[in-house]
Design a protein around this nucleic acid. Structure first.
Lengths: 163, 163
DNA sequence: CAGATCGTTCAGTATTGACTGAAATCTCCG
DNA sequence: CGGAGATTTCAGTCAATACTGAACGATCTG
């Protein structure tokens, strides 16, 4: 790994860590985004990241269950190969947008907790809840629309390439 | 504080902590959203949250500089009063949307780091960068539009109330 | 000016949690 | 069936950090 690549991997580590995952998860995903061979074994990754195999194992499970990485096997090869599929990006975005839902849910429970108060006392939290409700609806809509549009562009390009 | 209120405060604490602030910052902001008296002294807050004054002091600075809370003083009263202004909500949203910018910036630096690679090797990260570029532009736009619309509705309501 | 109250600072404490590395488990080949 | 290569598990270590509480400084009152 060049210093620049190493810095990228480390930044992805800190970033995904700030989103609730572990630093190692970010490093691993980042590495799978930039490594020359898109499919890497656990040993490859451990060597590249200077990490223990145990750490890779646990992190691989975390990333695989959340859909960010894909595990594949090859006939006549006991090893597992990890790669970063394109869908991982969509999942990451949906996950990030999920914080708006969390915020609204918390506000909702808070409103229940102070249900007996007069409206002017609940106004602050009510507004918080309303704004989150909007964002929770609209942001995923915008993202989904873009992803749909992008996938149709892809199809068109592939058709053009074939023709 | 009732159990329900306490739970709300605690959930806000964990939530803002996951966004990079401290749990105490979330608890304090949450409390200022639901307390009966919108303006609270540091002593009031410390008592409500069972926290030390030192903790409140540091947290108040953090929240005030980020604009989430407002500090006010009254003539003939040495104490400072804290409250949660409506703009805090906007700032929180902008802050949350900032993660998209962070992601694109990291991807950009990563692309620089592997600038010498062939395009097919950079494709994964390039796509990551492009998608983030879109989200970084559009999500804040949608949020800003909504906030603007909401503020004009407010003005209309206030005028109606006066009339 | 003395006294009291409020705010800030900072060293210390305790907790959390990510990572390591060795032992255990599994799978497939010869 | 034995064994090599691979993965998983888990107890232990280590670092990061949020919070406490006492000491200090500042500001207003009587």
């Amino acid at each position: 790994m060049t210093p620049g690549e190493s810095q990228f991997v480390e930044e992805m580590g800190q970033f995904l860590a700030s989103l609730g995952m572990t630093p190692m998860a970010g490093r691993m995903w980042g590495w799978l985004l930039i490594c020359e061979q898109p499919e890497q074994t656990a040993t490859d990754i451990a060597a590249a990241l200077h990490a223990s195999r145990g750490s890779i194992s646990g992190t691989a499970r975390l990333l695989a269950t959340s859909g960010l990485i894909r595990r594949t096997t090859k006939p006549g090869d006991r090893r597992e190969y990890f790669s970063a599929p394109p869908e991982g990006l969509d999942l990451l975005l949906n996950n990030a947008a999920g914080i708006y839902h969390q915020m609204r849910a918390i506000a909702m429970r808070g409103l229940d907790a102070i249900a007996d108060r007069p409206p002017e006392s609940r106004a602050r939290l009510q507004e918080f809840h309303d704004v989150m409700g909007f964002v929770e609806r609209e942001v995923p809509r915008v993202i989904a629309e873009y992803l749909r549009q992008r996938s149709t562009e892809r199809s068109a390009e592939r058709s053009k390439g074939k023709a």
